[in-house]
Amino acid sequence: MAGLACDEGIEKMSRRSRHVRSKVMLGLTYAAAAMATLPLLFILVHLLREGAQYIRPGFFTQMPKPIGEPGGGMANAIVGTLMLISIASLIGLPVGIGAGLYLAERRGAPLATAVRFLSDVLNGLPSIVMGIFAWEFLVKPVGHFSALAGGIALGAMMIPLVTRTTEEMITLVPVSLHEAALALGYSRWRTSLTIVLRTALPGIVTGALVAIARIAGETAPLLFTALGNQFWSTSLREPVAALPLQIFTYAITPYDTAHGQAWAGALVLIVVVLTISMLARFATRSRFRAGTD
């Protein structure tokens, strides 16, 4: 009887210790989750404190003042960034989504394995290297910097990002949906386009936005390609201003007013990126959510 009571005691204690351990682990994951969002919150708060005061209507409509002079805006850089993003998306999205579809549909093929590996390598390529290559092939031969060269460099950076997220999202589409379409007499490509891509669309759009957000803030590839421009330009063949370049230009000056403009530019950049993400998430919220099956 004594032994039994002892066993019970041990059991009770181990149960309590397991309970405590569970609590501790849970607490650690909460802490990790908080840590994951902390940098963004910190950056946002800091940007708001430093940059918000410089954001006036003029910031969006006026051209930059000469360095050292207070006031002025970043109209040309905002338009330039939108231009660069558009060019990059025109290249990066179709190629990336197409490649992702290919990788998902031909999972085991040797070519797919090679493409997947190379795409991962490209993804890890330092952006400055991408900039140098774009300069070598797109700037040097024509003899001048251009928006087009910058857009293409950013587009090339987008391709592997979009490829891999597209592949992952398509792999999540249940095989049963695929089979259902085939069994109804749909050809393979039609099944891929109408069922597989459509079902994976919200995920692909999110992936595309993450890619856009990534390249919107890229500075290094633009240093040798789009160069930056203190004047108004919407020509593809001219150097063009971009928010990250403008922030960089202002931030390395010794003037407080210029620093203020840089903070404001950073705030605009981050707000633009956040807004695009949220708008698109809202827009792609499907009426017919795919089930968990």
Binding site: S176, A180, A181, A183, T199, A290
Partner: peptide, 8 residues
Amino acid sequence: FQRSNPFP
């Protein structure tokens, strides 16, 4: 099929 698979 074994599991119903309506399109979304």
